[in-house]
């Protein structure tokens, strides 16, 4: 039996085949969106570039050479040099590490936290639900950037504080989504069956509800990654995230701003990189959502 036949066979013989078939159907739906695969490849390429930064960059991102400061792009420095003579391309590639690390760390924090709060609130209902959702409303009623800025004002600048501040503002939409999903799931028969077998509520939430919420949470998280990237870059741009001399896109933009009129490439390059990453997350999230949307079948 060929792999494709196994993946599309109407008679399913094992749980493994069922899972594989579901993934395969998802993959086929995903492929119908022309922007899905390219955007996934862009993100993958950026991850690989960040990982292989020392191989890609021909220059050290920290080494200064004041004799060659503010050079426009040429053969030796393909994106020019900055105000201290450092290679902009090298700093961009190494900066991808910081920017991607911030984005994925925030996602790794807010995904599970939002999922947990949302499912628990939705499953338990009552006062737990009311208190938790009031908290979600409070954070949602607030512009994310302002709140993140206020937190950093209290905690002090730095990458780790930026991650905390952005996380604090990014969990509520996830929690609200997970709660809405939970409300539709909790009345189903298989949850009733699980409860009849004597499963405790943490077990029902963890084993039976959370896995069902996961796909939509992942889609929302991917879409929100675009905003997370922008907020994190904005914090660094204001001098509250990554600090110099560490290469980070937002911080590079901020220095580029001082040399804007004489050396526009200093600000143009990191801004384009931020936009590319955020655009890729937006498009990937869109296509994942379309692929998972049962109405599109």
């Amino acid at each position: 039996m060929s792999v494709v036949a196994w993946l599309t066979a109407p008679e399913i013989t094992s749980p493994r085949q069922a899972r594989a078939q579901r993934l395969y159907a998802l993959w086929r739906a995903f492929r119908t969106n022309p922007m899905g695969l390219p955007s996934a490849l862009v993100i993958l390429a950026l991850i690989l570039a960040a990982a292989a930064a020392p191989l890609l960059a021909r220059h050290d991102p920290y080494v200064q050479d004041l004799a060659t400061r503010l050079r426009p792009p040429d053969r030796l420095h393909i994106l020019g040099t900055d105000e201290l003579g450092r290679d902009v391309f090298a700093r961009l590639v190494f900066g991808a590490r910081t920017s991607l690390a911030i984005a994925f760390l925030v996602a790794a924090i807010v995904g599970p936290v939002g999922l947990l709060i949302g499912t628990v609130a939705g499953y338990l209902g009552g006062w737990t639900d009311r208190v938790l959702m009031r908290l979600v409303d409070l954070f949602l009623a607030f512009p994310g950037l302002i709140l993140a800025l206020a937190f950093i004002a209290a905690l002090g600048p730095g990458v780790d504080h930026a991650i905390m501040a952005v996380s604090l503002t990014a969990w509520p939409p996830i929690a609200r989504l997970a709660r809405a999903e939970t409300l539709t799931i909790r009345k189903t028969d298989y949850i009733a069956a699980a409860r009849l077998t004597g499963a405790s509520w943490p077990r029902v939430v963890l084993r039976h509800i959370m896995p069902m919420c996961l796909p939509s949470v992942i889609v929302r998280l991917t879409l929100n990654m675009a905003g997370i990237v922008l907020t994190a870059a904005g914090l660094s741009f204001l001098g509250l995230g990554a600090r110099p001399p560490a290469p980070e896109w937002g911080a590079m933009l901020s220095t580029g701003r001082q040399y804007l009129l004489g050396a526009w490439w200093l600000a143009a390059a990191p801004g384009l990189a931020i936009m590319m990453l955020s655009l890729a997350f937006n498009l990937l999230g869109d296509s994942l959502r379309d692929a998972l949307d049962p109405r599109r079948g």
Binding site: A233, A267, G271
Partner: peptide, 11 residues
């Protein structure tokens, strides 16, 4: 939605 506003401003 994807371009940082501060970058658009600078450009």
């Amino acid at each position: 939605h994807s371009a940082p506003t501060f970058w658009l401003g600078l450009m």
